[in-house]
Measured scan of single mutants.
Amino acid sequence: TTLHFDLDGKKLQYTGVSEEIARLVEELKRRGVDLKEIVRILEELLK
């Protein structure tokens, strides 16, 4: 799965993300978590 974000005018793309992580990101968005925080979490998970 590939995730795309537009953060402060920067286009971020994460490829090869598992379905689980993609679902987690969608859930965080639904809960109103700040996009910067979501990206920070995502980068930690993908290390």
Rank of each mutant, 00 (worst) to 15 (best):
K10D: 08
L35I: 14
D6K: 03
E27K: 12
L42E: 00
I21R: 02
F5P: 00
D8M: 04
L3R: 00
L12D: 01
E43N: 09
E43A: 05
V25A: 04
T1V: 15
L45T: 11
L35D: 10
E27G: 10
V39T: 03
D8I: 01
T2K: 05
E37N: 07
I41W: 07
L24S: 14
G16C: 05
Q13L: 14
T2G: 04
L46V: 06
Q13S: 15
T1M: 15
G9W: 02
V33P: 02
D8A: 04
A22Q: 07
L3S: 00
I21K: 03
D6S: 04
E37S: 09
L35C: 04
A22G: 09
G32C: 07
R30T: 09
I21W: 07
E27P: 02
K29M: 14
T15H: 13
A22W: 11
S18I: 04
R40T: 11
V25D: 00
K47Y: 15
K11G: 06
L42D: 00
K11P: 09
K11I: 07
E37D: 11
R23H: 12
K11A: 10
D8F: 04
T2W: 03
S18E: 04
V39R: 03
K36F: 14
H4C: 06
F5K: 00
L12P: 00
D34Y: 12
V33G: 05
L12A: 04
S18H: 05
E26W: 15
I38W: 01
R30L: 14
E19F: 14
R31K: 12
V17R: 00
G9L: 02
V17F: 02
Y14N: 00
E26Y: 15
R31C: 05
T1L: 15
K36R: 15
K29Q: 11
F5Q: 01
G9Q: 02
D34G: 07
T15W: 06
Q13P: 01
V17P: 01
L7C: 04
I41G: 04
R40W: 14
R30M: 13
R40D: 08
L45Y: 08
T1E: 11
Y14M: 02
T1D: 06
E19Y: 14
G16K: 05
L12S: 04
L35Q: 08
L42M: 06
I41V: 12
E37R: 09
V39L: 10
G9C: 02
E44G: 11
K11L: 05
E20I: 05
T2I: 09
R23I: 12
K11F: 09
K10T: 14
E26K: 10
R30V: 14
S18V: 05
T1Y: 15
E19K: 08
L46H: 05
K29H: 12
E26A: 14
R40E: 07
E37L: 09
E44I: 13
V33L: 10
